[in-house]
């Protein structure tokens, strides 16, 4: 008689096995993709056809529906990376490594898109592609940090060892980002103050807010979908590397 020990494991430790993680989360991938696509269709419809043009900025206000979600994700993804870094250092959860590695290029991409759409929006409204003001500058610095982390991942041969070192650096970055933000704000202030999340409620009319929130969720789900897919890819890449190493050892023996 065999004793079944597997059922006593929590889902948390069960997904610690990369193969189990892929099996468990694979059914999530298609629903997430469809949900993302639906949100994008709805959000873009609202953004293009069912929201008013701004009385000052005209149709260029629609850039906001792409710009704001990207800017939000540029910070949210770093949060995901920092939490994963804690997972790597504190619990040594194997999937935290993978999540951290998968999130870095995505964060860099969303940050770059936030800067790109921002400068496209800045050209007609402020009259310049780039202005050295607080928010743009700290977003640029954030992009540099993301790219540095991506470069660090690529520089290591041993990915398991890389994960712990990069986790340390990611957490140092997480401590530093508020300091950078503060110093850059001190250095220069020109950007308009925050206008979506305020204590006295949103300052925008509902007709603009609805598409903004739909797009907000669309981009967040896009990130979740891409993150999951990238984690699966990373698990498979590691398996391929292990198999190649084993094959090479077999040849030499």
């Amino acid at each position: 008689m065999s004793i079944d020990t597997t059922s006593k494991q929590s889902w948390w430790s069960r997904i610690a096995h990369p193969g189990q993680f892929v099996i468990w989360t694979k059914p999530l991938l298609w629903p997430l993709t469809i949900l993302t696509a639906l949100l994008f269709v709805g959000g873009l419809y609202f953004a293009f056809f069912n929201s008013p043009a701004d009385y000052q900025m005209g149709d260029t206000v629609r850039i906001m529906y792409v710009h704001v979600p990207n800017a939000w994700l540029s910070q949210f993804v770093y949060g995901v990376m920092a939490v994963s870094a804690l997972g790597t250092l504190v619990w040594r959860h194997p999937m935290a490594d993978v999540s951290m590695k998968a999130a870095a290029p995505l964060g860099a991409l969303f940050t770059a898109l936030a800067l790109f759409t921002g400068s496209l929006w800045g050209r007609p409204t402020w009259g310049t592609f780039w202005e050295w003001d607080g928010r743009m500058t700290s977003t640029l610095v954030l992009l540099f940090i993301y790219l540095g982390i991506v470069a660090l991942w690529r520089a290591f041969d041993d990915q398991l060892r890389a994960a712990r070192v990069i986790a340390v650096f990611t957490l140092i970055g997480a401590v530093n980002i508020p300091i950078i933000k503060f110093s850059v704000d001190w250095w220069s202030t020109l950007h308009q103050p925050a206008s979506v999340f305020r204590a006295d409620g949103p300052k925008m009319p509902g007709s603009i807010l609805t598409p903004l929130f739909v797009m907000f969720f669309a981009f967040t789900f896009l990130f979740l979908t891409l993150q999951l897919k990238a984690m699966h890819t990373e698990v498979k890449r590691r398996r391929v590397m292990t198999l190649q190493r084993r094959a090479a050892q077999g040849e030499s023996a």
């Binding site: 610095v141 660090l152 530093n176």
Partner: peptide, 10 residues
């Protein structure tokens, strides 16, 4: 250097 430079901006 590319890791340190952004952190040294403040």
């Amino acid at each position: 250097p590319i890791l340190i430079a952004p952190l040294s901006i403040p």
